[in-house]
Design a protein around this nucleic acid. Structure first.
Length: 883
RNA sequence: GGGAGCAUAGCUCAGUUGGUUUAGAGCAUCUGCCUUACAAGCAGAGGGUCCGCGGUUCGAGCCCGUGUGCUCCCA
């Protein structure tokens, strides 16, 4: 069989993925094994694969594949989120392109379009995950608007309402004037924006000698002003507190009041109070029972609806329908015209924007549904405790702080959205606005009849739907139908799930709320470990964004480098808990690693037909690698248990590239067209197989391919079970290290003395541990191109000297020795060790150190001292020979 | 404005209750090799005031304080 020059991923990836699916390796059903369960964070149903998905799904796949290979019943559940705002915005956009306005459609018509869109584009992202090699149990694919899932969300709403934890109320909410919906606090992104501070003068109503100037960033809300507020201790305004001033343009009389809330150092120290348009103003308004005058409609345009009492002038009426930003300029101009705009200053301020539409958020009073968080947390205090006491372990642990800080300052959760795409709120209203909450209309009628003694009411369901996160917080429970069909076999087996892998950005949106739902509906944690990935940035540390165009096309990368190299590239650069700086060069490194493995395969395959019972054994190499393999397997286990995945991959990478390819294979490699010992060959196949198994979770495709090419197989590596590993023997590892050091030392000398690789040398070894050298001398001679190797008890004249540990090596080459070079090298080494000895001596001669330090530390320092002295002695002897 | 985190080689990061050779790795760099698995490779090397200052300690990259710079979260 002819193997290609380099590894060609494109030709094998589909083949193996289909094979794995055919064998149903990824399907899981409850059995008597221990479960290892991961629920995938459901991406938006209309989303496409980006670097963030690539990172966290690769991590999940690594975890789940390792679990599958270690005797666990591995179950990884895929699915998508209906993502109400994002999806609805896309559908509205699509309809607009077709010339259809959402407002011209009924709810039913709109939802028909939305479902069509979902069927057409939904789940593309799940297909893309197959390309990446993700071993998901596709039979379990879930969607947050599946029939049962929908029912479970409604059930939970009704349940929480009946428990008194959900209420409806008129509150200041974050209003998105573009999306036309309320948002939860978490969906508001604060941005620094350049704006202006307008200094507006308000004249006193009754005393023409008095006036007060207010600094505001929002003159467009001025017609909604109901008071001016100053700090009671502010000397400047003592004489105006309690008096009335006139709001410009609208000419409304409003009081000047005082409250500690006002910061006397900001602006002029006087604040205009507009309770309809600012959260803090609203609080003050409530405190002083001020009127609420709303001057902006749902789209953020001016409305005179609350201005009837003011008998608005034609000037005021001319503002009607004007957008808030145009209105800001217009009102500023008009105030300036009447001479009451004192000045403007540029100002950098924080402005809330919508996470989804980017629109500047308005604070707006409206009737919404809320979840009472204080009540909820009182009922489920373990939501906080389980994380703080590590019942749920957060990785990295610093995220615990963020979590507790949020929970301790938690506000009520606004769960209603003015959207159609989502679970429609199960509340039914009569004409007067009286309502009942029930799972369906039928039950609502019964409930209404009981409550209002009307057996045949005309009821209408709430138009709004629920926040997407109000459905995804049930994800780890409802993917196993734990709410719609409680107590079923699956939920009992798979829940709590094992590990959650997700981004730090949704710790509040999702992680915290899943823990809340876990306690409320299952009485336990939803998962045992949470691994938070960082954000994927470009190599300059910038966020990936469409505007910057720095977001790579993942599928193109997979096509170019292969899925394994892509997985390798993103994982190797991904330190636990930190942001990752993505650079395509790490994918190249992954591709090169593929080739390295491929070429090792080619080498080993060349030996297949050259096995010979009589060829020389190379027991040292076999024993050493056996032990090295054990050592690394155990190390990788430890690293993986601590979720140090990137380090585990680095460790395996180095084991394969350095230990296996650069050392072991070279040590056992027979000469050109020479036979190889049958047992060495078989051991080599065995080690190679073990390496592939270790690497498989990280790079599934190439490992499966090479596994099958290496030898006739009846099984697949995908499902090969890890055998227990015995601890490594320290002595073998030490001897292997000595051999490496000696070889490297001699090669270094060859390099520095410019002895050509092809030129042979003669080597004398002066050592007290001849027995060890005897075991490694064959490999040593081969690897250093030594023609004649012998042992000596004394110095060898006119040789190049190297000191390895306490041993001295004398090298005789055919060409003359450059002794100046030699002396300089040795002198440099001598200086280092002398300095080192000095620092050790200083410690040992310090009485307090000897008194206080632990005995093993002192013993170690003594050993350092004697080692250094021996080394210095050896170097000095060599130097004296040269001089 | 409130909170959290970070600062170690050119870059990205390790560095485990303070002592394991006056700090390690990968990538990049430099030198030498077209050695019959691999030049997308092989062999070797160089490179660091562990952000500044102060403290605790026999001993600090690690602990404490402080300053500076950066990042994130919240309002």
């Amino acid at each position: 069989m002819e193997l290609s020059k380099n590894f060609e991923p494109q030709s094998i990836e589909n083949k193996w993925y289909h094979h794995w699916l055919e064998k149903q390796y990824f399907s899981s059903l409850p059995d008597d094994r221990e479960p290892y369960t991961i629920v995938m964070p459901p991406p938006n149903v209309t989303g496409v694969l980006h670097m963030g998905h690539c990172l966290n799904n690769t991590i999940q796949d690594i975890l789940i594949r390792r679990a599958r290979m270690s005797g666990k019943n591995a179950c990884w559940v895929p699915g998508t989120d209906h993502a109400s705002i994002a999806t609805e915005a896309k559908v509205v956009g699509m309809l607009r392109e077709k010339g259809i306005a959402k407002s011209s459609l009924t709810r039913e018509e709109f939802l028909k379009y939305a479902w069509e869109w979902k069927e057409k584009y939904g789940g593309i992202i799940l297909q893309q995950l197959k390309k990446l090699g993700c071993s998901l149990d596709w039979n379990r694919t879930s969607f947050t608007m599946d029939k049962d899932y929908y029912a479970s969300v409604i059930k939970v709403f009704v349940d929480l309402y009946e428990k008194g934890l959900i209420y409806r109320g008129k509150r200041m909410v974050n209003w998105d004037p573009v999306g036309l919906t309320a948002l939860s606090d978490e969906e508001v992104i604060f941005k620094e924006i350049d704006s202006k501070l307008y200094y507006v003068n308000y004249k006193s109503a009754d005393d023409s000698s008095l006036s007060i100037t207010v600094a505001t960033t929002r003159p467009e809300t001025i017609l909604g002003d109901v008071a001016i507020c100053v700090n009671p201790s502010d000397e400047r305004y003592k004489n105006i507190i309690g008096k009335e001033v006139i709001v410009p343009i609208i000419n409304r009389r409003i009081p000047v009041i005082s409250d500690d809330y006002v910061d006397a150092t900001f602006g002029t120290g006087a604040l205009k109070i507009t309770p309809a348009h600012d959260k803090n103003d609203h609080l003050i308004g409530t405190k002083y029972k001020l009127k609420i005058i709303d001057t902006l409609d749902e789209k953020g345009s001016f409305t005179d609806i609350d201005l009837k009492d003011d008998q608005p002038s034609s000037q005021v009426l001319s503002y009607v329908g004007m957008d808030r930003f145009a209105l800001r300029k217009k009102i500023a101009e008009d105030i300036s015209t009447i001479g009451q705009l004192e000045k403007t200053e540029s100002y950098k301020g924080q402005v809330g924007t919508s996470e989804r539409t980017g629109a500047v958020i308005e604070s707006r009073l409206s009737l919404q549904w809320f979840l009472n968080m204080e009540g909820f947390m009182k009922k489920n205090p373990d939501t906080l405790h389980s994380v703080m006491n590590d019942t749920i372990q957060f990785h990295p642990s610093k995220t615990k702080n963020t979590y507790s800080h949020w929970l301790e300052n938690i506000k009520d959760w606004c769960i209603s959205r003015q959207l159609w795409w989502g679970q429609q709120i199960p509340a039914w209203y009569d004409k007067e606005g009286n309502f009942v909450v029930a799972e369906n209309e039928e039950k609502a009628k019964v409930a209404y009849a009981q409550k209002y003694s009307d057996s045949n009411p005309t009821l209408q369901q709430d138009e709004d739907c629920l926040d997407t996160w109000f459905s995804s917080w049930l994800w780890p429970i409802e993917v196993f139908k734990g709410i719609s069909h409680p107590g079923n076999k699956e939920i009992d087996y798979y829940y709590p799930t094992t590990t959650l892998v997700t981004g730090q950005d949704i710790i509040f949106f999702w992680v915290a709320r899943m823990i809340m739902a876990g306690y409320e509906y299952k009485g336990s944690v939803p998962f045992k470990d949470v691994y938070f990935t960082g954000m994927v940035r470009d190599k300059l540390g910038r966020k990936m964004s469409k505007q910057l165009g720095n977001s790579p096309d993942l599928l193109a990368l997979i096509d170019q480098y292969g899925a394994d190299a892509t997985r390798f590239g993103i994982m190797i650069a991904s330190p636990a808990g930190n942001d990752i700086l993505f650079d395509e060069s790490s994918l190249e490194q992954g591709r090169n690693f593929n080739n390295k493995i491929w070429n090792a395969l080619k080498l080993v395959k060349m030996w297949e037909g050259r096995q010979d019972e009589t060829a020389i054994e190379n027991q040292f190499a076999l024993d050493w690698f056996e032990n090295r393999l054990r050592e690394v397997s155990i190390e990788v286990d430890n690293l993986m248990q601590q979720f140090r995945i990137s380090e585990a991959l680095k460790t395996i990478y180095s084991l394969i590239w350095d230990d296996f390819c650069s050392w072991y294979l070279e040590w056992v490699k027979p000469g050109f067209e020479q036979p190889i010992s049958k047992s060495v060959y078989e051991k080599t196949i065995h080690y190679f197989t073990e390496l592939l198994q270790l690497l498989h979770p990280f790079m599934p495709f190439i490992t499966e391919e090479v596994y099958h090419l290496l030898s006739e197989r009846t099984d697949d590596i995908c499902n090969r079970q890890q055998q227990p590993v015995a601890p490594a023997e320290e002595e073998m590892l030490r001897n292997g290290q000595l051999l490496k050091n000696v070889i490297t030392g001699i090669r270094d000398i060859r390099n520095k003395q410019q002895i050509k690789p092809k030129e042979t040398i003669e080597l004398f070894i002066q050592t007290e541990e001849k027995a060890i050298y005897k075991k490694i001398e064959t490999i040593l001679a081969k690897q250093t191109n030594t023609e004649k190797l012998s042992y000596t008890e004394e110095n060898v004249a006119s040789a190049i000297t190297s000191v390895i540990g306490k041993d001295k090596l004398y090298i005789i080459a055919k060409q003359p020795v450059n002794s100046d070079n030699q002396i300089a090298e040795l002198q440099k080494e001598l200086d280092y060790f002398k300095g080192f000895l000095l620092s050790v001596d200083k410690k040992l001669s310090n009485e307090k150190f000897v008194q206080n330090a632990k005995p093993e530390i002192i013993a170690l320092e003594r050993k350092k001292k004697s080692d250094a002295e021996a080394k210095i002695k050896a170097i000095e002897e060599s130097l004296s020979l040269l001089k």
